[in-house]
């Protein structure tokens, strides 16, 4: 059957995806090993925060398929999908559900991580804003969330390989090249063109958020208020 090549993932999105893989795998390994690697755990955690902020903004300002409105798993879309009537492009509704779950768990890992401590020699950048006993509890949640993350990552990878081997649909290549191949009836519209000024704007915001949290700015400011 005739297929058309279609651009689905713009390059900032692909860069985001593979940097996220790097950051999360790195954060997982450095978190488990501890010791001197806690420095790197903090840096990779910061990188993950920046990437997440980027992704959220890109979900509104990116190209067509990157935008949340175009793949948000609404009940209607999920029903269509389960009836087998979904022929869209990009994330299918169930895939989208797992993507949002992954992003949520990562966000929760970051929110807990910045307040956590290990009782040895490692604290998140906002640890000093809360009581030690609360931080201890939050550190426990951080560890439970790691289990949740492992489950979701496992699901994500299994799904990709299920598509590759059983459904003969390679989802890895589009995440590298940006292009997928469609049947003519699937064609819904072009991906639009990428706006570099928007990209720069989003990157600036994302790095500022990381800088504000990690530089000690918040802690110093609150300390100055209570003085």
């Amino acid at each position: 059957m005739k297929t058309i090549q279609q651009k689905v993932w713009d390059w900032p999105l692909r860069l985001f995806h593979w940097l996220l893989v790097l950051a999360v795998v790195g954060a997982y390994i450095t978190g488990e090993l501890g010791g001197s690697l806690t420095d790197w755990h903090s840096r990779l955690g910061g990188l993950t925060l920046g990437l997440l902020v980027f992704r959220v903004l890109w979900g509104f300002l990116g190209t067509y398929y990157a935008r949340f409105v175009h793949f948000f798993p609404t009940p209607g879309r999920l029903i269509t999908y389960f009836k087998g009537d979904w022929h869209g492009v990009g994330h299918n509704p169930v895939g989208a559900l797992s993507i949002f779950a992954l992003l949520l768990v990562l966000a929760a890992l970051i929110v807990t991580g910045v307040f956590a401590n290990d009782d040895i020699a490692f604290e998140g950048p906002l640890f000093h804003l809360i009581d030690k006993s609360l931080s201890d509890r939050i550190s426990g949640w951080h560890e439970w969330l790691v289990d949740g993350l492992l489950g979701l990552v496992g699901l994500h990878i299994t799904a990709v390989f299920y598509y590759l081997l059983i459904k003969k649909n390679n989802l890895i290549r589009p995440m590298l090249t940006g292009n997928t191949f469609l049947r003519p009836y699937q064609f819904v519209g072009s991906n639009g063109s990428l706006s570099i000024p928007r990209f720069i704007f989003v990157v600036l915001i994302a790095s500022s958020v990381v800088w504000i949290v990690w530089s000690g700015l918040v802690t110093d400011y609150l300390a100055s208020l209570s003085r």
Binding site: G34, G35, I120
Partner: peptide, 10 residues
Amino acid sequence: QFGKLGATCK
């Protein structure tokens, strides 16, 4: 050396 100690505690 402190890194090795921390990993032992952990």
